[in-house]
Write a protein that binds this DNA or RNA. Structure first.
Length: 248
DNA sequence: TGCCATGTTAAACT
DNA sequence: GAGTTTAACATGGC
């Protein structure tokens, strides 16, 4: 489910509730539920994988983590623990097994919206600046850094690195300028491909290396390893993805 | 059936 | 205190 593009799809599904009053709120989220009824759901803001349901003077921050899910209007699988249910006069919004926090709406001012690869406010130059400040970082860690590439997840990471022909263990500071540009460009570009394919239910079909066995380019066996600070799965081709070891 | 994964935080270590 | 490792959360696919 939940890499940045999937959250945008969720946002679209909830648009009919914008401007509506919350009639009731329940679920096992450890928040002050009694504060929610009568508030107006004004806006659904996303920041990468985070959702911010703006209901002044609060905002409900929801993160689906690894296994979170949602449904609109129907409680699809009642056996799951219902984390948050918001009732409106034209339907219902349900969230399951996710992180939920009720925050003061002012937290939205603290967010660096320019870091969201899927946002109109995305600023590639700013991402470049952040990367330049961390030359010792492995590119596989850099792509997953939500302060630099908010919304990028492990699938996008693997696919982006294959597209640009860069080995996941290359250091940011060793990338040639053109490769650095390609990295920043594809982080956003692939995210939109992901979004389109997800909507068409053909996302998996379009994976080139993620969970794959052989390289679609050269046919060699792909390497699967847990790499970087986060030890997340990396799928890559030793032949087609260059390990940049020399400072350029 | 058991393992593991599209993620993040916070506690528990050194 | 810092930096690092582990646990916790919880569901579904293979």
């Amino acid at each position: 489910m939940p890499e940045g593009p999937s959250i945008l799809i969720l946002k679209e599904l909830t648009q009919k509730f914008i401007g509506k009053q919350i009639i009731a709120a329940n679920g096992n989220a450890k928040i002050e539920m009694e504060k929610l009824p009568s508030l107006i759901f004004e806006e659904y803001k996303t920041f990468g994988k985070q959702s911010y349901l703006v209901c002044k003077p609060f905002t409900i921050r929801i993160h689906l983590l690894m296994f979170g899910s949602y449904s609109v209007d129907e409680q699809t699988k009642p056996d799951r623990q219902l984390r948050l249910h918001l009732k409106f006069d034209n339907g219902d919004l349900y969230f399951y097994s996710c992180s939920v926090k009720l925050l003061d709406v002012t937290v939205l001012k603290e967010i660096d919206w320019n870091a969201d690869v899927l946002s109109d406010e995305w600023k590639p130059l700013k991402a470049r600046k952040k990367l330049k400040a961390h030359p010792e970082m492995m590119v596989c860690d850099a792509l997953l850094d939500q302060n630099i590439f908010s919304g990028v997840g492990n699938i996008i990471k693997n696919e982006v690195l294959f597209r640009i022909g860069v080995h996941p263990e290359s250091l940011v500071g060793n990338l040639p300028s053109k490769k650095l540009s390609a990295l920043i460009f594809e982080a956003r570009n692939y995210s939109f491909d992901f979004l389109r394919w997800k909507k068409e239910y053909v996302l998996k079909k379009n994976w080139l290396v993620h969970t794959k066995k052989t390289c679609p380019k050269c046919g060699e066996i792909l390497t699967k390893k847990h790499l970087g600070l986060t030890h997340r799965r990396s799928f890559y081709c030793e032949k087609d993805q260059v390990l940049y070891t020399e400072k350029k």
